[in-house]
């Protein structure tokens, strides 16, 4: 049976797609799943850095597609999790080097010998987005509780709905104290606007900056609260019913509602 093909996307950049891909992937691998992470951000790759494997890249996805190497030659196995692999993006090529059909063929092939293929989508909704989505049958939409991120996520949700790709949302970088004081939208607000099912709530945590710079997924350290949160997300992806960590309180939705009425 072939594995699940999930694209991690957001519209807006910098909301945590790559961090989510790495940590959800590592959490799944930790539970014994065979996972392949695919960096679809051709020309601006970063998944290798966050995973800490940047020095071990020999071949990339464009070379695979151009037949310069075998798919398995380009895969990098993580040293910490036996069942976690990653396929790097090309850094000095353009996103147009890969067609949607070519991307889909690679993803389908990877899924034959994996339980999960997680595709890290580039920011935006241009060609790179379309090819990253082409190989997926499910999506995780990552957003932060900010008006601009939600507006972009809404655009992406619309595009995924049009392609009939089922999706769930991870609300990232939530600051509960700001939600309480009414300065940040609550997770409920976000899900209501996107009318989408919730997959996870990840609080803002400055440890992520450090672990990202060092190329160490935060799930490696079980004492970290985010490790627990990514593990819960991994379990929900696997079909378990897991209660959400309660961080939220009602917040400022008025302005957004008027915004969406217009759009």
């Amino acid at each position: 049976m072939s594995g699940r093909r999930i694209v991690i996307t957001s519209g807006k950049g910098g909301v945590g797609k790559t961090t989510t891909t790495v940590n959800v992937g590592a959490a799944l691998a930790k539970r014994g799943k065979r996972v392949v992470l695919v960096d679809a951000d051709i020309g601006l790759r970063n998944l290798d850095l966050v995973l800490g494997v940047e020095k071990r890249i020999v071949f990339d996805i464009v070379e695979v597609i151009e037949g310069r190497c075998q798919l398995r030659q380009a895969l990098i196995r993580d040293k910490r999790f036996e069942s976690l692999h990653m396929l790097p993006a090309a850094q000095t090529r353009e996103k147009e080097s890969i067609s949607e059909e070519q991307m889909k063929a690679v993803i389908v092939e990877l899924a034959e010998s994996a339980d999960f293929v997680l595709i890290d989508c580039p920011a935006g909704i241009e060609h790179g987005f379309r090819s990253a989505v082409a190989g997926a049958t499910e999506a995780i939409v990552v957003t932060t509780p900010e008006v601009s991120a939600i507006r972009d996520a809404d655009r992406v949700v619309g595009k995924l709905n049009a392609e009939r790709i089922p999706l769930r949302v991870i609300v990232n970088r939530v600051r509960p104290e700001m939600v309480k004081s009414g300065e940040m939208m609550s997770v409920e607000d976000v899900c209501e606007i996107l009318s989408a099912e919730l997959l996870g709530i990840v609080p803002d945590d400055e440890e992520v900056i450090d672990t990202t710079n060092r190329g160490e997924p935060i799930v490696l350290d079980e004492s970290k609260r985010l490790a627990t949160i990514y593990d819960k997300i991994a379990r929900r992806l696997g079909g378990d019913v897991v209660a959400f960590t309660n961080l939220e309180a009602p917040g400022l939705i008025g302005r957004l509602k008027t915004l969406w009425k217009a759009g």
């Binding site: 807006k12 950049g13 353009e94 996103k95 935006g124 241009e126 060609h127 790179g128």
Partner: peptide, 8 residues
Amino acid sequence: CPAGIEMG
């Protein structure tokens, strides 16, 4: 400018 290095 938009994010990325594509057409936008």
